[in-house]
Amino acid sequence: MSALLQVRDLSLHYGPRVGCEDVSFDLHPGELLCIVGESGSGKSTLLNAVAAQLTPTAGSVRYRQRDGEWLELGALSEADRRRLAREEWGFVTQNPRDGLRLNVSAGANVAERLMALGMRHYSQLRATARHWLERVEIDPTRIDDAPTSFSGGMQQRLQIARTLVTQPRLVFMDEPTAGLDVSVQARILDLLRRLVNELGLAAVMVTHDLAVARLLAARTIVMQGGRVVETGLTDQILDDPQHPYTQLLVSSVLTT
């Protein structure tokens, strides 16, 4: 099976400071890859550089689009980058308020990406929005409510619906469950696990939570100080960590 995304020797520096350095990985269709590491390890920088939200200092990111053609993301025009983000990608932010449009209703938030793709049939937009609210376990009668009236967990589920409604091929997620309490977190993780399976999504998810990686990702990348210190099957990394930093991370997990 051929890769969907190829990252090679990717570096991003903030002036003299290293954001991430020399990162390479492949992502295959239908695969969820976790990037773990503590705060400041460069995982969010890496995610943003891969998703073409930040401009890398060196290295390349290639993406194979729906028609099979490989795109070099560094060489993309703004128009093409936005087209990809609209038609083939999704991005879920840690704080749902950054990913949602707070001054319009939940339904409009879900329908917006469809309208951006040119859908102009109100009743269909509405039916699709309702269907997706149900899929993320939001009562569809709340379709006309403002997201500001939703709890944090509901807002995050709304953001997931808004992102997945266009059936993207590749989704980037930046700590989608951080900042939510444990029961809410479990619900969102279960939801993500199910949707990723049902839709056959490929995804790159940043998390500091090893349990999240174990639940969702077949493969994991461990980062420290901007560099990849270990990469492989998630269960391998968690059960037989090789690098001192990974061993420290694994031994720091609280067990109940």
Binding site: G232, L233, Q236, D239, Q242
Partner: peptide
């Protein structure tokens, strides 16, 4: 068994 399953390297 874990080595065979590639759970351990």
């Amino acid at each position: 068994l874990r080595v065979i399953y590639a759970n351990y390297r």
